[in-house]
Design a protein around this nucleic acid. Sequence first.
DNA 1: CTTAATGTTCCCCA
DNA 2: TTGGGGAACATTAA
Length: 260
Amino acid sequence: MPELPEVETVVRTLAPYLTGRRVISARFTSRFVTPGDRAKLARQVSGRRIESVARRGKFIVIAFDRGGLAVHLGMTGKLLVSGIETVHTYGLFTLDDGVLLYDDPRQFGRIEWGHARVAKLGPEPLDIGLAEFSASLRKRKTQVKPLLLNQAFLAGLGNIYVDEILFAAGIHPLTPAARLSAGRAAKLHQAMVDTLTLAIEHRGSSISDYVDADGNRGNFQMLHRVYGREGEPCAACGAPIKKVVVGSRGTHYCPVCQKR
DNA sequence: CTTAATGTTCCCCA
DNA sequence: TTGGGGAACATTAA
């Protein structure tokens, strides 16, 4: 569920509620979401004042007056400021005003003390300039789709947005990154900025699970042009959208607009 | 019953 | 060291 536009929307809805709040107590109940000593994590968080809530890649970074948390929503994670506990609520923060719930049926998400994983992320797609982006593409022989999914290369893109961006740029997902011309690299950069910006404006994509911190769904799924549209006519040329498997991820593209 | 799902990591092989 | 492919993690919905 959560790629850059979804996590950005969660952060924007979360920050006004959390900034300045104090954590009274916390409880964690999943050995997957919170590996290691869960009671210790609850003690570390308790009593802390929340200074800021920010996004880095797909991580939600919560900074306290001392230390901080990195939250990754995995596939089905939700951070909710207005919600009720379910069987899949694996984190509960009691605040001086309200509660914050972490809900995650598949438990692929993580709540971790510190920023160890955040430090390993590549640049932000909305910050990297064209020159640096083109230069880094040129160094990589791998296929462009798996490369864009690599969080150490760029932080925040996932399966939906890579497919949408490659369609907008007219680039086949299996094209070797190093073989993209300067013109096509520029087109890819522009498609990345445009697609992510528009998706944030539409508050992200709600395919099945995703909701923001208030429990509201996003709308960008209405504007998907290839993701989840196998067999439907291409918006640009009318050819049926194809779906193949690349690196064990479903990959959607137009065989006419995105030639190898 | 089988398959696939917005993600990441690890293992095996070339 | 790089790159490709697949499995694993846990759950649910189609």
